[in-house]
Amino acid sequence: MNDKLLHDPESWLDEHGDYLFRYAYVRLRNRAAAEDAVQETFLAGIKAYDRYDEKTPVRYWLRGILHHKVVDYIRKAAREIAVDDSEDHEILDRFKYKAFGIPSQQPAPWKFDPKHAYEQKEFWEIFYRCMAGLKESMGLAFTMRELEGLSTEEICKELRIKPNNLWVLLHRARAQLKECLEAHWITPEGTEQ
């Protein structure tokens, strides 16, 4: 039996609905938007189904469609929010980034060993929750850069900011993510750090 028959669009919701929803939610951080994106993905999938070539599993094919829906949503959201860069100069000054690209203050060390944590299955659910908790412009920039791999130029254009402001947004996002991980990840007992 070929893949097309095995993957009737009516079965997509049960087989891939939650997977696609989780993919969208961690990127959009908005339940209604993520659910809409999944719905639009399925509808676009039905329309494009004739072109599905079975080379990739249907889940990844649908995820490819969802990726575009997510980026479209972020572009629209980016137009509606004003990026607050009032603290950016302070951060940039503190880092002397423009001149040397180096921080003048060393960051606090990790409270756990990240390399060890990355080997623990339970860690990734906390990582997911912490990424899903990033706020507004910081979250949008983080999704575009780190999860979707858009270029600096593209992101700056979408958010209408300069590269230095993007750097500050990503710096803040990483700091918040680190803080959240440190607050929620407890190294399992009996394992070495």
Binding site: L13, G17, D18, Y19, F21, R22, Y25, R31, E35, V38, Q39, F42, R59, K121, W124, E125, Y128, R129
Partner: peptide
């Protein structure tokens, strides 16, 4: 697909879709 946080489509969204 091996990260499965306890997060899923709401019943309402599932029905609508």
């Amino acid at each position: 697909g091996d990260i499965t946080p306890t997060l899923q489509l709401s019943d309402e969204a599932r029905q609508r879709i």
